[in-house]
C-alpha cells in the first residue's frame, strides 16, 4: 500500500459514470462506474476479454464511448479529449514506441510531443533515464531491449511530462517476478507523489497491491472495494484446508462427497471447496468422523481464510449461473 493514504475528499482525477461501449451487437463495456482519487492505485481486474482494455481506451480518450460520461483531470474526456492529453500518461499493453529509434531518441520525441524544450527537457530526460534505470541502455535500439527494459521505457515515456493521471494496461504481463516487484515499487512511489493511477491486470495476486479495485466480467463491474473489504465478504462456497500425510487417500475420498465442489491440491495441503450453502463446521466434524472410521491421519483441518482469488472465483461463478 502506498504510504500516504489517498485523500478521499479530493476531487477524483478519474470519474466515469454509466460508461458503455458497444461494437455492433456486442457490448464490450456495460454501464460501469469508476472513481479514482489523486494518489490512489486503482486496479481494474478481469480475464482477457472482460472489457478492461476497451474501458481504459475510453478513459484515455482514444475511443469514444457509446454512452456515459468521463472526467479525467477535470476535463470532459468525451468532448475535449485533446485538452486532457497533456495531463495523462498511458502505457499500452503492447510496446508501442518506435523500435527503430534508440531509448534516448524515443524519450526525446515524447518530450517534444509534450512541449518540453531546453533545460526542462534535459532535466526530465535525466530524471527518466536515472529513475527508470535506463541509463546504461540509452543508446540501444528500443526493439533490441529485453522486455523489462521496454516496459520501463514505455513508463518513462508516459511520465516525462509529469501527468496527473497514469493509465497502465497490463503493465507487468510477461515480466519476471523481480522486475514485477520493482515495477510495483515504482507505481507506489508515483502514487505517493499524488498521481492517480489506474492499472489493469489479470494477475489476481497483483490485485492485493491496489488501494481499491473493481472486478470486471463480460463488460460489467461485478465486485469492487478495497482488498480488505473484498476479503471480508462471506464466501458463498466455503473452503476447508486439510493437512494430512494421507492426502492422496483424502483426495480420492473427497471426490465422492456430495458437498465437494472442487479439490485444489495446494502446497502439500488439500483445499476443498464446498458447494454453496454447506455449513463449514458441520463438514469439518463429518471429515473428522470419516478419518477416524478409516484410520486416516488428519494433521490439521479448518476453514480457510479466503484469498482474493477465492472471492473473485466465487463472484464470477455466481454471475455465470
Amino acid at each position: 500500500m502506498s504510504a500516504l493514504k489517498p485523500d478521499v475528499d479530493a476531487t477524483p482525477v478519474i470519474l466515469a459514470e454509466n460508461l458503455t461501449r458497444r461494437f455492433g451487437d456486442f457490448t464490450a463495456v456495460d454501464h460501469i462506474h469508476i472513481t479514482v482519487q489523486p494518489g490512489e492505485v486503482f486496479g481494474l481486474l478481469g480475464a482477457n476479454g472482460a472489457g478492461k482494455t476497451t474501458a481504459i481506451r475510453m478513459l484515455c480518450g482514444m475511443l469514444p464511448p457509446t454512452a456515459g460520461w468521463i472526467r479525467v483531470a477535470d476535463v470532459d474526456m468525451v468532448r475535449h479529449a485533446r485538452r486532457a492529453r497533456g495531463l495523462i500518461g498511458y502505457v499500452a499493453q503492447r510496446f508501442s514506441l518506435y523500435g527503430d529509434l534508440t531509448v534516448l531518441e524515443n524519450l526525446k520525441l515524447q518530450a517534444g510531443l509534450y512541449g518540453l524544450t531546453g533545460a526542462r527537457q534535459r532535466e526530465r530526460l535525466e530524471w527518466a533515464l536515472a529513475h527508470l534505470e535506463l541509463i546504461d541502455r540509452k543508446d540501444a535500439m528500443a526493439e533490441a531491449l529485453p522486455l523489462g527494459y521496454k516496459r520501463r521505457l514505455a513508463l518513462a515515456a508516459a511520465l516525462l511530462h509529469e501527468p496527473r493521471v497514469l493509465f497502465l494496461d497490463e503493465p507487468t504481463s510477461g515480466v519476471d517476478p523481480i522486475a514485477r516487484q520493482r515495477f510495483w515499487e515504482l507505481i507506489y512511489e508515483l502514487a505517493d507523489g499524488g498521481i492517480g493511477i489506474l492499472v489493469t491486470t489479470h494477475y489476481m495476486d497483483e490485485a492485493l497491491f491496489c488501494d481499491r479495485l473493481s472486478l470486471m466480467q463480460a463488460g460489467r463491474i461485478v465486485a469492487e472495494g478495497t482488498p480488505d473489504e473484498l476479503l471480508r465478504r462471506p464466501l458463498p462456497t466455503p473452503i476447508l484446508e486439510l493437512d494430512s500425510p494421507d492426502a492422496v487417500a483424502f483426495e480420492q475420498l473427497a471426490q465422492t462427497w456430495p458437498e465437494t465442489r472442487e479439490i485444489i491440491p495446494h502446497a502439500g495441503q488439500l483445499r476443498i471447496r464446498l458447494h454453496a450453502g454447506t455449513e463449514a463446521s458441520a463438514m469439518t466434524a463429518k471429515i473428522w468422523a470419516m478419518a477416524a472410521e478409516r484410520g486416516l491421519t488428519v494433521g490439521a483441518l479448518h476453514p480457510a481464510a479466503p484469498e482474493l482469488e477465492d472471492v473473485f472465483v466465487a463472484v464470477l461463478e455466481e454471475n455465470e449461473t
Partner: peptide
C-alpha cells in the same frame, strides 16, 4: 499496425 499511431494520439499531437 504497430500501435505507434494510437500511442502518439494519447499525446497532445493533433
Amino acid at each position: 499496425e504497430f500501435g505507434t499511431l494510437e500511442r502518439l494520439l494519447v499525446t497532445p499531437v493533433a
